[in-house]
Simulated scan of single mutants.
Amino acid sequence: MEVIEPLNRKAEVQRYMDFSKFIHLLESQQLFLSRVSSFEDKLEGGLTPYYYLMKSGMAEALDHAINSIWPSVTPQTESEIKQKEQDTKRFQEKAKKRKVVTVFGDIPAIDIDFPTLYKQHKEWVDVSCWHSNESESMAMWKVYGGETNSIL
């Protein structure tokens, strides 16, 4: 699991839920996880275009194409041409060895069909949504708390 920022062990986490779900949580001592694909908001929990661009290697390939492959508007010296050729060889070798960190472990990028991964990701991930906001949200109460008997 990738931790994007340091965890604050003193942070108070909260979850809006109806009272019966809270009692079930206490009695079973188990969290209920929802499949991301079951969310009403179809964008919620999905991979972002940024993720796709960065993890698929397209951003790196575009950077390499612009800086090392496409012709220059100014004449290049022999050493600049050789440098670009070396950069291309390094890029190709690095691309062959590139791995992508997934929930299933590190997978060689060459073995991943990124368009399928991008679409299927929400079928493979289950979540339990909590927050650490300092203030309450009426919208969250309505969505997750239910009509009556809800707790935070």
Rank of each mutant, 00 (worst) to 15 (best):
Ala95Cys: 09
Tyr52Gln: 15
Phe32Gln: 07
Tyr16Lys: 02
Lys122Asn: 13
His121Tyr: 15
Ile110Gly: 02
Asp106Thr: 05
Glu60Trp: 07
Lys55Trp: 02
Leu117His: 09
Ser72Glu: 00
Gly57Val: 11
Lys82Pro: 00
Glu40Gly: 15
Gln29Lys: 11
Ala65Val: 12
Gly57Gln: 09
Leu47Asn: 05
Lys99Trp: 01
Ile107Ser: 02
His64Arg: 02
Trp124Asn: 13
Asp111Asn: 12
Thr74Met: 06
Asn8Pro: 06
Phe22Asp: 12
Ser68Ala: 14
Lys99Ser: 06
Lys96Asp: 14
Asp113Thr: 01
Lys84Arg: 07
Ser28Trp: 00
Val125Trp: 01
Leu53Glu: 07
Ala109Tyr: 03
Asp87Gln: 11
Phe104Arg: 03
Lys21Val: 09
Glu27Leu: 10
Leu33Asp: 03
Ala59Gln: 04
Phe114Val: 11
His24Ser: 12
Leu31Val: 05
Lys84Asn: 05
Gln14Asp: 03
Tyr16Pro: 00
Gln86Tyr: 02
Glu40Tyr: 08
Asp113Lys: 00
Ile112Trp: 01
Gly46Arg: 14
Thr48Phe: 06
Glu80Met: 01
Glu93Ala: 13
Glu60Arg: 08
Thr88Glu: 09
Phe22Ile: 07
Lys21Asp: 14
Gly105Ile: 04
Asp126Thr: 11
Leu31Ala: 05
Lys119Pro: 05
Thr102Asp: 00
Pro75Phe: 01
Thr102Lys: 01
Lys84Trp: 00
Glu78Gly: 01
Gln29Gly: 08
Ile69Met: 10
Ala109Asn: 12
His24Leu: 10
Asp87Cys: 02
Thr88Tyr: 11
Val3Pro: 11
Pro6Asp: 09
Lys122Thr: 15
Glu123Cys: 04
Lys55Asn: 10
Ser28Gln: 04
Ser68Gln: 12
Asp106Tyr: 02
Asn67Arg: 10
Tyr16Glu: 01
Lys42Tyr: 05
Arg90Ile: 08
Leu26Asn: 05
Pro108Ser: 02
Leu53Gly: 13
Gly45Trp: 03
Gly57Met: 03
His24Trp: 11
Gln14Asn: 07
Pro75Tyr: 01
Lys97Trp: 06
Ala109Ser: 11
Glu5Arg: 15
Ala61Arg: 09
Lys82Asn: 04
Gln76Leu: 04
His121Met: 04
